[in-house]
Computed example of a mutant assay.
Amino acid sequence: MTERPANAHQAQLLRLLRDGGPNSRARLGDQADLSRSKLAVEVDRLLETGLVAADGLAASRGGRRSHNVRLNPRLRFLGVDIGATSVDVAVTNAELDVLGHLNHPMDVREGPVAVFEQVLSMAGKLKAAGLAEEFDGAGIGVPGPVRFPEGVPVSPPIMPGWDGFPVREVLSQELGCPVMVDNDVNLMAMGEQHAGVARSVSDFLFVKIGTGIGCGVVVGGEVHRGVTGSAGDIGHIQAVPDGRPCACGNRGCLEAHFSGAALARDALEAVERGRSAELASRLETNGTLTGADVAAAAAAGDATALGLIREGGTRTGQVLAGLVSFFNPGLVVIGGEVTGLGHTLLAAIRTQVYRQSPPLATGNLPIVLGELGPTAGVIGAVRLITDHVFQPA
């Protein structure tokens, strides 16, 4: 298992190398605001612990050439993104480059034991492929609220059997390394912040539209989790007064009217009413309809599918407009499976937010699709665990 940095200076140097890649000692000293002698002491200690490695000579800045250092290329981290209907597992190096990535369909309602058997089997396959001998840390995302300090899911609406399950403790024992657990949407926000569309933004909202709807809230570069870990649970904000019943027990929640599950149900209803030949033929072929079928039908120009997406985008935009007026973010990122609905969805959300929110809040507000797709969650998970491992012991 990796040694932890001994002090805040070492932790800062490790994070600079993680986020910026290999660098010269001279440039690191500038970025960390450390004197040459202090920097030399800290870097030499990090070389001794094996957390960093020498990486040749740097380009000349005049005078004696500085030596490059980088994070130890043998460090390996595991990122796990558990969604409602599938599991993503990836191995990265310490600079968060994805070296191997597996996806497997899995219903989260099968419970933690079945899901973690699948996760450990996938991690084993990545090891067997020669990508890692052991892991120096693992980050795990789950699709529900998490009591963050303990790494425990709390009454997650779509995860029966998970309430209070000690995810962090159990996986730490199984994997033999430190583990951190968070809500999957927070991790997707961290992924986009590290390597995606939110790289240069410190205050933004990441909205995941998948089986359910959630929002990662990033303030001053840090994820805001709230007192009990349930910040950003926007799927249960009321979008339609006295609307449809929701899994949470209330009526009219955004999630009950627009999410992967709601979209599939609306598509089925449209077929039953004879409103879409395109969706009817997909139902006949596949025996079922999903959000992906609605996306494909819309791409083929089906008016009913396009209408469903626009209506969902408008409802999402209504809720987001309130958040934008309240929080005044620098960026709104839309991600999750339903991003297959692409620009039709984005246009409807933008129209509603720009119409409803005050001009001061939306004057320079980009609302964009995420860049990382299915790797956002696993990259965010590894960012979370490296934040933990790269802090003083």
Rank of each mutant, 00 (worst) to 15 (best):
D30T: 11
V152C: 06
S155D: 14
E150K: 09
G370Y: 01
F148M: 07
I309H: 10
R310D: 12
T304G: 01
G21C: 07
R61V: 13
R383Q: 12
G50K: 02
L365M: 09
A6S: 12
A321Y: 08
D184G: 07
R199V: 10
G20P: 02
M188Y: 10
R64F: 06
V332W: 03
T314G: 00
D30K: 12
L268A: 10
A26V: 12
A300E: 15
C215V: 00
F390R: 03
V271N: 00
N72C: 10
G50C: 10
G212P: 06
S66T: 11
G235V: 13
G252W: 06
A11T: 09
T228W: 11
H236G: 08
K125E: 15
E371R: 15
M159D: 03
V294R: 04
H257N: 08
L47F: 01
R273M: 14
F135Q: 06
G226L: 10
P366Y: 01
L78G: 14
Q173D: 13
K38Q: 07
I158N: 15
V389D: 03
C248T: 12
P392I: 00
G161S: 11
E269M: 04
I367C: 01
T386H: 09
L96A: 11
R76M: 04
P22A: 13
P241A: 14
K125M: 12
L13R: 04
L102S: 02
